[in-house]
Amino acid sequence: MSDLPLVMGIETSCDETGVALVRGCELLGDAVASSVDQHVRFGGVVPEVASRAHLEAMTPTVHRALEQAGAKLSDVDAIAVTAGPGLAGALLVGVSAAKAYAMALGKPLYGVNHLVGHVAVDQLEHGPLPKPTIALLVSGGHTSLLQVNDLATDVVSLGDTVDDAAGEAYDKVARLLDLPYPGGPPIDKAAQRGDSKGIRFPRGKWGDGTYDFSFSGLKTAVARHVEDAERRGDPLVVDDIAAAFQESVVDVLTRKAVDACVEHGVGTLVISGGVAANSALRALAEERCREAGVELRVPRPRLCTDNGAMIAALGAEVVAAGLPASPLDLATDTSLPVNSPLAV
């Protein structure tokens, strides 16, 4: 293994400063500094707060990752960094630092795609991905269904959310139900106690013949339900509402993902992104994949959320594919399309 290049991955697209070291499919060091606590009172990520935190955390996080890996900066063979999509000011901190490390160490720089990184990270846990693989990315910022023919060179978008991301819907519904931010874990917990039977919320873009998603109508339906209960003076059964909301989200996500595998004749589904930690999503995906004869791969929660490991993992693929390094005038791209695993 040691003849494979040591790749340092740097991720700053949202509120986590992530740095990791990867050799092939082996994760050697993985450090994350999160500014999530500073965003809680605002009920969402504040870009300027996140950018300030990235600048403070950048070099200390690099050294924590190096220490874990038992490596020195001079051991690094290549540097991969998230070029997009993500928050403009946040991306720029990571890209600026990555360029400086590449310049000073005389090593190649690779600006890579955050979304494809979420798929690539699974290789660190379950080994090389079969080609092709279908991937469902669900997080606070993204809800995308992809066909990954080759991580470094050939990723096709099958569908995307047309409005809110799934994680964003969780955050907004949590606010309606007076649950804390971020909304995923408390809603998941409440839903496990609740019973969805009495309430049926809509399934956005269900059976519309596309692989697109929509969650804003669902969020509005929850708001209506809450307001109606308040108007009637009925007590709000938060656990049951959470269960019905979660059921609607995971039903559409898993149905469309498994349908995509079946329609395209693909035997493997990867689910990644922060929402992949959700217990109901995992359970229903397992059930439906089993029925359809599809292998389900979900990285452990630590690897599903934003981190440097996903960027290093994709960087290692890009290096192995022999793709050209990015120039030092590499620009960040807040809406880098998923069909560009390597930014140009």
């Binding site: 070099t59 000011g89 600026s96 400086a100």
Partner: peptide
């Protein structure tokens, strides 16, 4: 701030390396 941080992030990483 966004421009300012480009310089600082670059300087920190260069000096570190």
């Amino acid at each position: 701030y966004t421009g300012l941080r480009v310089g600082l992030a670059t300087a920190h990483a260069l000096a570190d390396a």
